[in-house]
């Protein structure tokens, strides 16, 4: 039957007949097991289906955070990096939910890095080469002290957060759990107790 004839036939069919035509001839019967035992529906996590919509950092701040993330945890050895783990976008969400103190540390730290990049290399941090960025990230290589300056405190925090956000992500754990049995990222979760 030609396409035009099919379309003509469809337009002349009553609505009820149309609906019937879409249904299978015999509705599938639920399996006896499903009737007796209520199944737990298999579901997936939101990160598998979508990405975080950034809402906290400015465009420039987020680009700076993405660049740092890529430098701290680059993709290597078949392991996804911080960018593939969407660590910067997750941190945008996390910092947005966090205390004002942490928000300020992040905003000031990212702005500071960007300003230093402009002063030293005449371009935003996000555009720096690895060698150039390395100069600004030098405080991460200094000896640990209890009371660091503001930029060092930020860099230590953001490094730790990027590592955790990456290593606790589904893509990272998916790869690592195949290599090391103890790296499955599994823990005992306690539900609210009443």
């Amino acid at each position: 039957m030609k396409r035009r004839r099919i379309l003509q036939a469809l337009t002349t069919m009553p609505a009820a007949a149309l609906l019937r035509a879409k249904q299978p001839a015999v509705p599938p019967k639920p399996s006896p097991a499903a009737v007796e035992e209520i199944p737990v529906i298999e579901a997936t996590i939101a990160d598998s289906a979508g990405v975080t919509v950034p809402s906290f950092f400015s465009h420039a701040q987020l680009e700076t955070l993405r660049r740092i993330s890529d430098l701290i945890v680059p993709a290597s050895n078949d392991l996804p990096g911080a960018l593939a783990a969407h660590a910067p976008e997750f941190l945008d969400f996390l910092v947005c939910e966090s205390s004002e103190e942490r928000q300020t540390l992040y905003r000031e730290g990212l702005d500071d890095l960007n300003a230093r990049a402009g002063q030293q290399f005449a371009q935003p941090f996000a555009k720096l080469s690895s060698t150039q960025a390395d100069v600004l990230l030098a405080p991460l290589r200094t000896e640990w002290t209890a009371n660091p300056d503001r930029l060092t405190a930020f860099l230590r925090t953001v490094k730790s957060d990027i590592l955790q956000a990456t290593q606790n992500s589904e893509p990272w754990i998916h790869v690592m759990s195949k290599r090391v049995r103890s790296a499955g990222g599994v823990g005992t979760y306690w539900f609210p107790i009443d």
């Binding site: 996590i45 957060d161 956000a165 754990i173 990222g185």
Partner: peptide
Amino acid sequence: KKVYELPYRGF
């Protein structure tokens, strides 16, 4: 549970 199933990725 896996840590990435938690709302805040273990943070």
